[in-house]
Design a protein around this nucleic acid. Sequence first.
DNA 1: ATATAGCTACCTATCGATAGGTAGGCAAAA
DNA 2: TTTTGCCTACCTATCGATAGGTAGCTATAT
Lengths: 178, 178
Amino acid sequence: MAYSETASRILDSAERMARQGGYNSFSFREIAAEIGIKSASVHYHFANKEILGAALAERYTNRFLDGLGEPGAEGADEMLRRYAASYRRALIEDGQMCLCGMFGAEISDLPDPVARQTRAFFVRNIQWLGQVFQARGLGAEEAETKAACMIAALEGAMILSRSLQDDTLFDRIIEGYR
Amino acid sequence: MAYSETASRILDSAERMARQGGYNSFSFREIAAEIGIKSASVHYHFANKEILGAALAERYTNRFLDGLGEPGAEGADEMLRRYAASYRRALIEDGQMCLCGMFGAEISDLPDPVARQTRAFFVRNIQWLGQVFQARGLGAEEAETKAACMIAALEGAMILSRSLQDDTLFDRIIEGYR
DNA sequence: ATATAGCTACCTATCGATAGGTAGGCAAAA
DNA sequence: TTTTGCCTACCTATCGATAGGTAGCTATAT
């Protein structure tokens, strides 16, 4: 899906808000005010909130996986290091939570299309990381469990580091994965 | 703080909603409707939302730590097993997120009193678990990092298991800690 | 014993602000 | 001439919060 200039700016704005306070923290009005249009015009680009929310999660997932490249592009150790570095960038450079970590926490209250896209983020990430762990010689099942372990640790590390306002905590937590 | 019958029911109701959808997902009106009083009466017990939110996090933290007992009550391995089991209960029996994991994810959007109580949850949990890891012979600093690691893994495991609607995933993720 | 005063735990009614969402118009581009 | 992208001008529902009132209990003072 290629988004127009305005649609992209809507998504940028919504993503920033959602990564700070979750699904209920972005609104058509606030997005519109931020990018300089009217809230009715936001509805022109995204008919309703669940469509916007699902688009948010989908774009985030695609960008995230694109940023990772192919799981076999380099040696397994290097790919694991890269994976952790992606989360580190999201936390330290953007100063924000992982969008799908946030949505995942509140998933039971999300409209179905948003919940489905959120699940897709985790499924695709487990697959990607699972391939890296398989390259390290693990069986398919064990590799997926290891992948889920690492993703859980990274999402949790983001929550703790942000809560305690201590970026070095994130680094110390993920030290085993670098 | 000892709460009256009604105040406790308000907290119960708000906690359930907050653990599903975060800080913005509980409202005075909905709580009131659920327990059979008017929203103005909820304000009688908790003057405003940030006071209610902070009380929520404080009660949750106290209950959680009370449920754990003293970190030196049994051997370190047993205490670690108990700690993980507390999260498992919250997830599997209640079918809900950790309240402070949820608040932690959205901490940058929370009123200060709520954010402070949320931080207190993590600080006190790291201290508790840190003592267990020290009992295993680790130095104070290393023990606290290990503690943060484990808490991060558990909070993350809750998010993944709930998102993917797979309770067995939680167990597989925390297998190393049991 | 009774009047006074204050507290508790609710109520009704309403406030301004904000939420998501819609109908219909208008100007420029295709 | 139709589509695109925005606008004005609304709507209904809900938000947190407040004002003012009431029934019933308790404690003190007369």
